[in-house]
Amino acid sequence: MVRVSNGLVGILNFVTFLLSVPILGAGIWLARKASTDCERYLDKPVIVLGVFLMLVSLAGLVGACFRVSWLLWLYLLVMFLLIVILFCFTIFAFAVTNKGAGEALSGKGYKEYRLGDYSNWLQKRVNNSKNWNKIKSCLIDSKVCSSFSYKYLNDTVEKFYYENLSPIQSGCCKPSNDCNFTYVRPTEWSKPAGVTYMNQDCNAWDNNKSVLCYNCQACKAGLLQNIKRDWKKVAVVNIVFLVLLIIVYSVGCCAFRNNRRDNSYGYPGRWK
């Protein structure tokens, strides 16, 4: 008679196996259909995740239902390592996102962001030229500022200043408030000639649609604000996922103990 723990492990891994199929399919679809470097950047991690889930779930399914002890042992080892990795990542995510916040501006509906307000680890990642050039290419490909310009095209300067802009829109698609440029359109500002600015972002601004403020420190800060928000959400989800993994791992340990006990008694039809 198959014990409850073995049955639970089998059911859970069967569900995981079913989930791995669309994940793997999505990765293969991205690899074939991707038209930009940003989309191609996503296909390999998705494929790896799909294959990983498929193999681990198969190991757990076969090990629990057919009493293959070495497969169940391998499954438990991978689960243990996954728990450790997720725990470390969750702590790391909270640690690197505990700094940084937007600066509220008087008479403005949006905030502005300063790169120096964020953790040194995150700053180093975006200050690396190779990393930032890839990120900048993705931002341009995503047309974040083009859609921003279209959305607020008919705004007067007074109305524009009260818009609730996203961190990336605020940092990458318009000049810093310090520059005091004259508003023409959301992504077009009149820049006085011969003026020296303390804020280097003012010098970096250009009305060219492929330049704008993509080279500004504020743009990097806006991206980090997005990353901070998303990583905190991921960290919370990880905590829930960790609890579930620990429960599954505990049930798996019971199933492994059952397998060893049955094998030691030499039950017919069991793997030895």
Rank of each mutant, 00 (worst) to 15 (best):
Asn120Thr: 15
Pro45Arg: 12
Asn226Glu: 12
Tyr197Phe: 05
Ala193Tyr: 02
Gly100Cys: 07
Asp201Leu: 05
Val237Met: 14
Trp205Thr: 11
Glu163Phe: 00
Arg257Val: 14
Asn177Ala: 12
Asn208Gly: 08
Gly100Ala: 06
Glu112Leu: 06
Leu77Arg: 10
Val21Lys: 00
Ile85Glu: 05
Ser142Leu: 11
Glu163Ala: 07
Asp178Gly: 02
Phe92Gly: 07
Leu76Cys: 11
Tyr265Gln: 13
Lys233Asn: 02
Leu122Thr: 10
Lys220Asp: 00
Leu223Trp: 11
Val51Lys: 01
Tyr161Glu: 14
Asn259Tyr: 10
Gly25Met: 03
Val248Met: 04
Val4Ala: 14
Gly266Gln: 04
Ser142Arg: 13
Val236Gly: 03
Leu153Ile: 10
Cys145Ala: 08
Val56Trp: 02
Leu30Thr: 07
Leu153Met: 11
Ser250Ala: 14
Phe92Met: 13
Leu86His: 07
Glu163Cys: 02
Lys33Gln: 15
Val15Lys: 03
Ser137Gln: 08
Gly107Ala: 03
Lys233Val: 09
Leu71Lys: 10
Gly102His: 03
Leu61Thr: 02
Gly27Leu: 09
Asn208Arg: 09
Asp43Pro: 03
Leu244Tyr: 04
Leu58Gly: 00
Asn164Ala: 11
Cys254Thr: 06
Val68Ala: 13
Asp117Pro: 12
Lys228Arg: 12
Asn238Ile: 09
